[in-house]
C-alpha cells in the first residue's frame, strides 16, 4: 500500500486501515470455514472475564478477534493475562463469563489449532521425526502414511538433516524449530504462540522471527502471538494489542501497516523505529499512566 514510509505523514501509521485482500491459498489446503463477509474472525473473544479458583482476576472485559490471514501480537509484561487469552483460544481453559469463539472449542475438531509453548515441549524420548509425527499419529495416521508430510515440514523449518536426532542433542533454536514444525504439520488454521522465542538469544530470535513469517505467510493462518518484546511484536504482526495487568485487559491496539513479506531490512527502517516508539509509549502509559505528551495522537 504505502510504498515508502519516509514520505508518509506520521499519523498515517495510526489511521484505520482498509482490509487486506486474501492471499491465494498454498495447495494443498483444508477447506476453510465459510466466512462471508471476507474476514469473519476465526478467533473471537467478547467481554471475557476469567477468574481463577484462588480469586485472582486474570482477565477483565477482554474483547479481541483474529481473522484468517491475520497476524496479531499480544504485548504486555508478565502477569497481564496474555497466556490466559491464548489458553482460552485453545480451549485449554474456560472463561468465567463472556463468549469465546475458536475452532478448538468446536466438538469433533482436532487439528485446526496449533499451539507453540514457551518451552519447546518436545517428547524427550522420541526423535525429531517422531515428535513432528505426533499430531498426525494422534489423528490415527501411521508412520509410513505421514512420512512424506513430516519430512516436507521438517525441510521447511530447516531440520531435514536432524530427523533422527533426540531433543537432548539439539540447541535451543533447533528445538524451537522442531516445536514449530510440529505445530505446522497438521496445516492448522489457527496458530497460537506463547512467547516461543523468549528463551533464545537475539540472533537466533531474529532469524526465527524472519523464518516464522515465511512459514506463516500465504497460508491464511490466524496467528496470535504473545510476547513481551516490543520489537518482536512490531516486526511480526499487523496489529499489536497492548495489555495491562491486574486485572488483565486490552488497553491499546496499534496497527503496523508494513506489508508482507517483511524482510530483515524492515528492522532498520524508520517506520519500524516509529512504530516501536508508539507501541512502547502505549505500553508504558498502560502501566505507569500518562508519562508525557505523546507526539502521536489518535490511539484507538
Amino acid at each position: 500500500m504505502q510504498a515508502n514510509s519516509a514520505t508518509m505523514p506520521p499519523d498515517a501509521l495510526l489511521s484505520p486501515h482498509p482490509p487486506y485482500p486474501p492471499y491465494p491459498p498454498y495447495p494443498p489446503h483444508p477447506p476453510l470455514l465459510p466466512h462471508p463477509p471476507l474476514l469473519q474472525p476465526l478467533i473471537a473473544l467478547q467481554r471475557v472475564h476469567k477468574q481463577f479458583d484462588n480469586g485472582l482476576q486474570a482477565l477483565s472485559d477482554v474483547s479481541l478477534s483474529v481473522a484468517p490471514g491475520e497476524f496479531v501480537a499480544l504485548l504486555g509484561p508478565s502477569g497481564c493475562g496474555k497466556s490466559t487469552v491464548l489458553r482460552l483460544a485453545a480451549g485449554l481453559d474456560a472463561a468465567s463469563s463472556g463468549t469465546v469463539q475458536a475452532p478448538a472449542l468446536l466438538p469433533g475438531r482436532t487439528s485446526e489449532t496449533a499451539y507453540v509453548f514457551q518451552e519447546p515441549t518436545l517428547l524427550p524420548w522420541a526423535s525429531v521425526f517422531d515428535n513432528v509425527w505426533l499430531p498426525l499419529r494422534l489423528q490415527g495416521r501411521s508412520r509410513a502414511d505421514a512420512a512424506a508430510t513430516v519430512r516436507q515440514v521438517l525441510a521447511r523449518v530447516g531440520l531435514a538433516d536432524f530427523e533422527q536426532a533426540y531433543p537432548a542433542a539439539l540447541s535451543g533454536g533447533m528445538k524451537m524449530r522442531a516445536s514449530i514444525a510440529r505445530a505446522l504439520v497438521t496445516q492448522p488454521q489457527v496458530l497460537l504462540m506463547d512467547e516461543p522465542f523468549a528463551a533464545l538469544d537475539d540472533i537466533t530470535r531474529q532469524k526465527l522471527n524472519a523464518d516464522l513469517l515465511q512459514w506463516w505467510h500465504g497460508r491464511l493462518m490466524a496467528a496470535l502471538f504473545v510476547t513481551h518484546s516490543v520489537a518482536e511484536a512490531v516486526f511480526l504482526s499487523q496489529r499489536v494489542l497492548v495489555m495491562a495487568p491486574r486485572p488483565g485487559r486490552v488497553v491499546a491496539e496499534l496497527v503496523i501497516p508494513q506489508p508482507y513479506p517483511r524482510s530483515a531490512d524492515f528492522r532498520h527502517s524508520s517506520a519500524f523505529a516509529d512504530a516501536c516508539r508508539a507501541v512502547g509509549a502505549a505500553l508504558s502509559e498502560a502501566h505507569d499512566g500518562p508519562a508525557r505528551q505523546l507526539p502521536m495522537a489518535g490511539l484507538r
Binding site: 480451549g91 518451552e119 505426533l134 489423528q139
Partner: peptide, 14 residues
C-alpha cells in the same frame, strides 16, 4: 508428565 505436554495432548484430543 510435563504440564505443557499434557496440554498438547488435550489440544489434539488424544
Amino acid at each position: 508428565a510435563d504440564a505443557n505436554l499434557r496440554d498438547l495432548f488435550r489440544l489434539y484430543r488424544a
